[in-house]
């Protein structure tokens, strides 16, 4: 089957070298770096001092760290269940080709081609306490008492950031819709003849047929929850009083303060949580989804 390759050895190596060099410097070395540095006390200049697991121990006694982990889990569940649930709901509706479904599909996906930064700036304006459209709308319809300093109050800040993220369902909706569209129409025709109503059709035909893609989408969405950074950084930078902090934000702050050891212990925590997440998802809801399902 394969072309005899011994004489090609030179070319094989040459073709792989650029990839291997980049992969080594941007994946192998960085992972080694964070694992090793997480056991050091180091400001990047001074002589590093070995402190063992000290950073991890103090992390788990630190209120901001624990709050950030908790918020990451809130993000993970909001993305994995709320966003994917809504995306699947809309995908099932659009798969039945209602009037204008192609147009709606295109509009729902639109935010994904706009950068998160621009979207976040727009929401910062919408949530703004002085001139933001949300407070103005509430005032206009006589609900003045519901106005808030959305991003500045303890109770509303985190929900406000989460809402502007999980209701953008387009990305996952498209993935799920593509999968639903591959189910042969004949299955639904047969069910229709047997007297199954729409709900029964969706529950007994569609859902089982798209289970794998749902698990993939959930895994991806949850991974995004763990890696969340942009919207929070731009809307609140973790505030008020760290109420919206996540591990990514905390990591950035530690790195800015040149606390390499602490920063790396947070990085290591992120990598480990990511692996635990994959293992848990695989051993519970989906056994088939492969490592290669994930993108950055």
């Amino acid at each position: 089957m394969y072309v005899k390759s011994s004489k090609n050895a030179f070319w094989i190596v040459l073709f792989l070298i650029p990839l291997l060099i980049l992969f080594f410097f941007y994946f192998v070395y960085p992972l080694g770096f964070i694992f090793i540095t997480s056991t050091l006390k180091w400001n990047g200049v001074s002589k590093p001092e070995f402190v063992g697991l000290q950073h991890f121990i103090s992390n788990f006694q630190n209120k901001t760290f624990l709050l950030s982990v908790k918020n990451n889990f809130i993000w993970l569940f909001a993305n994995g269940f709320v966003q994917i649930g809504l995306a699947a709901l809309v995908a099932l509706i659009l798969a039945r080709r209602p009037r204008g479904w192609k147009f709606l599909r295109t509009v729902y996906f639109l935010p994904n081609v706009i950068s998160q930064v621009a979207i976040a700036m727009m929401w910062a304006a919408l949530y703004n306490a002085e001139y933001g459209a949300i407070n103005q709308l509430l005032t206009a319809i006589g609900l003045d008492n519901l106005t808030h300093n959305w991003l500045g109050e303890y109770a509303t800040a985190l929900p406000a950031i989460i809402v502007q993220q999980v209701f953008y369902i387009g990305y996952f909706m498209i993935i799920i819709l593509a999968s639903v569209m591959t189910i042969p129409d004949s299955l639904y025709e047969a069910a229709e003849i047997d007297g199954a109503n729409v709900w029964q059709q969706e529950w007994h035909i569609t859902i089982p047929m798209i289970k794998d893609i749902l698990v993939t989408a959930m895994t991806l969405a949850m991974a995004y929850g763990l890696r969340h950074f942009e919207a929070t950084f731009l809307l609140t930078n973790g505030g008020p009083a760290n109420r919206t902090s996540v591990l990514g934000i905390l990591l950035y702050k530690k790195l800015s303060a040149l606390k390499y050891g602490q920063a790396s212990s947070i990085s290591t925590t992120l990598v480990i949580l990511g692996l635990i997440m994959i293992v848990v998802i695989r051993s519970t809801i989906g056994r088939k989804s492969s490592a290669s399902d994930l993108t950055q």
């Binding site: 992969f23 941007y26 070395y29 960085p30 770096f33 990047g44 950035y252 947070i266 990085s267 993108t295």
Partner: peptide, 21 residues
């Protein structure tokens, strides 16, 4: 497999090494 496993790495966690590198 090693290269493909790279998609599992949360790139955000590599801030410190990328900065040094």
């Amino acid at each position: 497999n090693l290269i493909l496993a790279g998609v599992l790495v949360p790139i955000i966690a590599l801030m410190a090494p990328y900065f040094r590198l």
